[in-house]
């Protein structure tokens, strides 16, 4: 097994790493970079808790090898709010609408939905459901998450 040197660009910051190729992006984010906001719920691409954005597109970080992600822009939940601590409007809406319960699915769901809002600033309920379908949530029944997205969409011009 040959380790590989690469640079991962995470939340706009470059990290030079020397990695065994089998390691998933999820494990490297959590264990090498200390970005534990990305959650491991199943390690098999079934739950969406590890959703991150790869060049803006939501993917399950558990199904991406870290060595595959070199040269791509990786966004994790830690990179969503601005550096001065200002939350993303969607994060604010999650808080306001009671879209958070246990919170374990929340980072992944926020990222999936931010990707949606970038593509489709005024999504329909069906589009929100579709974008959220890869993020399992066992607590909320999704209703208040959908409400939160709607509120952001409605307030955008």
């Amino acid at each position: 097994m040959t380790r590989q040197s690469l640079v991962l660009t995470v939340n706009g910051k470059n990290h030079a790493l020397d990695l065994a190729p089998h390691r998933s992006l999820l494990d490297v984010l959590r264990d090498e970079l200390g970005l534990t906001g990305t959650k491991k719920g199943c390690d098999a691409g079934d739950c969406g808790a590890c959703t991150v954005l790869l060049d803006g597109a939501p993917v399950n970080a558990c199904l991406v090898l870290a060595v595959q992600a070199g040269g791509q822009e990786i966004t994790t939940i830690e990179g969503v709010s601005s550096s001065d601590g200002q939350l993303h409007p969607l994060q604010e809406a999650f808080i306001e609408h009671g879209a958070v319960q246990c919170g374990f699915c929340t980072p992944g769901a926020v990222l999936s939905l931010i990707a949606l809002l970038r593509e489709t600033p005024r999504p329909t309920r069906a589009e929100i459901q579709e974008a959220l379908a890869g993020n399992l949530c066992r607590c909320t029944g999704y209703v208040q998450i959908i409400d939160a997205v709607k509120s952001v969409a409605d307030s955008s011009k």
């Binding site: 691409g45 969406g48 959703t51 790869l54 939501p58 399950n60 974008a131 890869g134």
Partner: peptide, 9 residues
């Protein structure tokens, strides 16, 4: 097929 995350890969 599956979810958006999976379809992206």
């Amino acid at each position: 097929m599956s979810s958006r995350q999976i379809r992206n890969r």
